[in-house]
Design a protein around this nucleic acid. Structure first.
Length: 158
DNA sequence: GCCAACGTTGGC
DNA sequence: GCCAACGTTGGC
């Protein structure tokens, strides 16, 4: 099983939007960057990811989601009405991919980017790298665990 | 709103 | 294939 960080702007689609979706599940579409796309293609049903809020008051990790499908073509790319439409992506030769994600948990407090950067166990993660713009990034199991332990509830209960 | 850091585009 | 110009991302 692999671990990921998936980035989104809360004013566009945040974790609270996901919570309100039917079955708290939604396709994660609109990834239009090749590096991020390649990471999506490495995803498998059952993987886990952190939901990261970017471009907002407190950027950081807000919760946990589960990857519910293997990667499949991003249907939004075929839809001329969609803001994610890409005429170069066709059903015969899809350029972009997506997975369905399901809400699992929202942290009581966002684990801010500031705190992530302060954690020596997370010094190598891409989220902490200056100028990083990738919306999908992988995490090692140890890094995943380290983030979970930064959750305030986790600290109180253990 | 500013701006650094990227990614993409397109002329040559 | 190079690289300048431009567009976008995202922290601050």
């Amino acid at each position: 099983m692999k671990y990921w960080v998936m980035k989104s702007e809360p004013c566009v689609f945040g974790i609270d939007h996901l919570i309100k979706r039917p079955h708290q599940t939604e396709p994660w579409d609109g990834v239009r960057n090749y590096q991020a796309r390649n990471f999506i293609r490495e995803m498998r049903k059952g993987d886990l990811a952190f939901f990261y809020h970017s471009n907002c008051e407190i950027p950081g990790i807000t919760g946990v989601i589960e990857i519910m499908t293997d990667p499949y073509p991003d249907l939004a790319a075929f839809d001329p009405e969609s803001r994610y439409f890409d005429p170069k992506s066709t059903p015969e030769n899809p350029r972009w991919y997506r997975v369905d994600v399901k809400f699992l948990k929202k942290f009581q407090e966002t684990i801010s980017l500031t705190r992530l950067k302060q954690n020596p166990l997370l010094k190598d993660i891409l989220i902490n790298r200056k100028g990083n713009r990738l919306s999908i990034t992988p995490l090692k199991a140890a890094e995943w665990k380290a983030v979970l332990h930064m959750d305030v509830c986790d600290n109180i209960s253990t």
